[in-house]
């Protein structure tokens, strides 16, 4: 019997028809679609938080991103004459994540450019879901960042509309952190830690509310959509490095953890299946690599934020990480003991 073959055999006796197919005869109910739906559900708190922080404009940006991603996915599959895949909801996830990576003030016409980069170039031209080597939403963010640097970094203070703060002058905590000399860090220009935690500070749409993001991540871990390995090791590595680099200043570390796209990136972007290793050892190496790169870019780079670039870079290393950390088959002798 070949791999796909499944047939209804008519035996010589002809009394009974039964299907003959490959083992196992039970399969999980957790399909790709179910998993993607779970990711969407896990993002709901963050979506709600960003609307609370940035107003309806945030909702419009995210809707625009989702709709354009889904449309591009459907159109490309038709154009490439491949089986339709929009129903697997992965384009919805990409759209949501892309939206969350954009500043709330971004002109709407720029969004489809990002969606095009994410869905058509990064995902579909490389063969569709599972085949892309770079995270679509992250690549799109970087494309937009390089194409429209001003618009992509003009962050409003979150909740500016409600709190009456001067929107234009609000710096993001990440900019403030970079502007301060290392070691001469003072918390004066920064929002309070509580504000950081609930999302009342500048940043991209979905990355500001740490609580909502963490809630979503816990949901994903509980329902075994992701393992906690990547988020823990990624955030942990950044914590350790910034703690040391900041002269053992806990406050400095906390701002680094809560600010910028770290939590969004570690929980929802770095855990993307296609672009992270499949084995647990590989996941740990990958996450530590992301953490180191993010810290280095933030501490020494010219850019205020390094999450996107770190994840993208590590994405490219995934095949090598997988090869180097391939599990040892149960019962196989360690190499150095081999004769």
């Amino acid at each position: 019997m070949s791999a796909e073959e499944e047939k209804t055999l008519t035996p010589a006796s002809g009394q009974q028809l039964a299907i003959v197919s490959a083992t196992p005869h039970l399969r999980t109910h957790r399909t790709t679609q179910a998993i993607m739906l779970d990711v969407c559900l896990a993002l709901i708190p963050a979506v709600a938080a960003s609307v609370w922080c940035f107003g309806t404009r945030a909702l419009i940006v995210m809707l625009f991103a989702v709709i354009s991603c889904v449309a591009f996915e459907a159109i490309t599959r038709i154009a490439l004459k491949r089986a339709q895949t929009v129903q697997d909801l992965s384009a919805v996830v990409t759209g949501l994540l892309l939206g969350m990576n954009l500043p709330p003030t971004l002109p709407l016409w720029m969004i489809p450019i990002g969606s095009f980069a994410a869905i058509v170039v990064v995902k579909q031209l490389f063969g569709g879901i599972g085949q892309n080597f770079a995270n679509p939403a992250i690549t799109a963010r970087i494309v937009l960042m390089l194409s429209f640097p001003t618009q992509m970094t003009s962050w409003n203070a979150a909740n500016g509309h409600a709190w009456g703060a001067d929107a234009a002058s609000a710096a993001t905590p990440m900019k403030a952190l970079t502007a301060n000399e290392l070691g001469a860090f003072s918390g004066d220009d920064l929002p309070s830690i509580l504000d950081m935690f609930v999302g009342r500070h500048g940043g991209s749409l979905g990355e500001t509310c740490a609580v909502a993001l963490l809630l979503g991540a816990i949901y994903l871990c509980v329902f075994r959509v992701i393992t906690p390995l990547i988020p823990c090791f990624y955030i942990g590595t950044v914590a350790v490095i910034t703690f040391i680099a900041g002269g053992f200043d806990a406050q400095f570390t906390i701002y680094h953890l809560l600010g910028g796209g770290l939590i969004l990136g570690a929980c929802f972007m770095a855990t993307d299946y296609a672009t992270s290793p499949v084995n647990w050892k590989g996941k740990i190496v990958f996450a530590i690599g992301c953490g180191i790169l993010t810290s280095l870019i933030r501490l020494f780079g010219s850019m205020p934020e390094g999450v996107s670039f770190s994840i993208l870079l590590m994405n490219l290393l995934v095949p090598h990480i997988e090869n180097l950390t391939a599990p040892r088959t149960f019962g196989k002798e360690r190499k150095r003991h081999a004769k």
Partner: peptide, 19 residues
């Protein structure tokens, strides 16, 4: 059958630690 999404479930589940 749909495209492999590289979720790693098969790797995590394999008792023989295969890929």
């Amino acid at each position: 059958e749909t495209a492999c999404i590289r979720c790693g479930n098969c790797v995590a589940g394999c008792p023989m630690k295969l890929l």
